[in-house]
Amino acid sequence: MSKIFIVDDHPVSQLAVQVVATGNGYEVVGSCDNGRDALIFLRSNHADLVVIDIDIPPPNGLEVITRLRQDGFPGGILVLTAHNDRHFIDRARTAGANGFISKNNHLDQLADAFKAVMNGYDFFPQRQAASVMTAEPQPEQELLSLLSNRELQVLGYIARGDMLVDIAEKLHVSNKSISTYKRRIMTKLGMSKTLEMIEFAKRNHLA
């Protein structure tokens, strides 16, 4: 029986994945709500598939995927998140994910995604839809591609109204590091005001 591990800080999402998994003959070997515990568990326990959200307590989903692949994790990785924007899909794929599903009305695809990834196929239906919607590269998408995963994460926190000191605590780094990230973000985006940056983030569904 194939084994699935769930990483999501929303209990309802965890339950939904578990119900679909067990209903389709898979064994759920565990779950957690943050990146640190996920890495600890997966370094000493077997899972054929990891279902992971992007917005989880540090390290975030993209960082977990990157570290798992660097550690040689051979199983499938399926991202299940509220985001469905092209830049998140592409970043997840680049990090090493085998599939991507948006929580927004796409939970019915879970069973198909499990089957595809377990059999060695990629599952990125949202990427195809995003490609159709953005046949021509948009300037703001090009700007987003300049940001690192950590900068993208910091930008999201700022846009949601978090203070720099609170962001530093969440990411386990110094206040100075967060200030540096903020300056780099504004430089890369060509912006001089925090409000501009926040509005940019909201337009691109980062908040």
Results as ranks from 00 to 15, higher is better:
Thr94Phe: 04
Glu63Ile: 11
Asn60Leu: 15
Ser2Asn: 13
Phe200Pro: 01
Asp55Arg: 13
Thr194Glu: 15
Leu152Asp: 03
Val154Ser: 05
Glu63Gln: 14
Asp112Lys: 03
Ala130Ser: 15
Arg184Glu: 07
His46Met: 06
Glu27Ser: 11
Ile65Tyr: 06
Ser31Gly: 04
Thr187His: 13
Glu151Thr: 04
Asp166Pro: 00
Lys103Ala: 13
Leu42Glu: 07
Phe73Arg: 14
His10Met: 11
Val64Ile: 08
Leu68Met: 10
Ile198Val: 05
Glu136Gln: 09
Pro125Asn: 01
Val19Phe: 06
Ile6Leu: 12
Leu164Ile: 12
His87Lys: 05
Ser13Thr: 15
Ala47Thr: 04
Met1Ala: 06
Leu164Pro: 00
Pro57Cys: 05
Asn119Met: 04
Leu110Phe: 10
Thr180Phe: 02
Arg150Leu: 08
Arg160Ile: 05
Leu68Val: 09
Lys182Ile: 04
Glu27Pro: 00
His172Asp: 10
Lys202Thr: 15
Val17Ile: 15
Met191Asp: 00
His106Phe: 09
Gly75Ala: 05
Ser13Trp: 06
Leu152Ser: 07
Pro125Ser: 13
Lys3Cys: 12
Pro137Trp: 07
Ile185Arg: 00
Thr180Pro: 00
Leu144Pro: 02
Asp90Leu: 06
Gly120Met: 10
Asp37Met: 09
Met118Asn: 09
Leu147Tyr: 03
Asp33Arg: 11
Glu63Ser: 15
Ser31Pro: 04
Ala130Ile: 03
Asp55Trp: 07
Asp90Gln: 12
Ala135Gln: 15
Ile54Gly: 12
Lys170His: 13
Gly75Met: 05
Ser44His: 12
Gln138Val: 10
Gly25Phe: 01
Ile40Tyr: 06
Glu142Gln: 11
Gly72Gln: 07
Thr194Gln: 15
Ser174Cys: 03
Asp55Thr: 08
Ile4Ser: 12
Arg184Gly: 14
Asp71Pro: 02
Pro57Trp: 12
Ala47Arg: 13
Ala159Leu: 11
Val173Cys: 08
Glu136Asn: 08
Arg183Ile: 02
Ala16Lys: 06
Gly96Cys: 02
Val64Pro: 04
Asp48Leu: 10
Gly156Ser: 01
Leu110Trp: 10
Ala111Lys: 02
Ile77Asn: 08
Ala201Asn: 04
Lys202Glu: 11
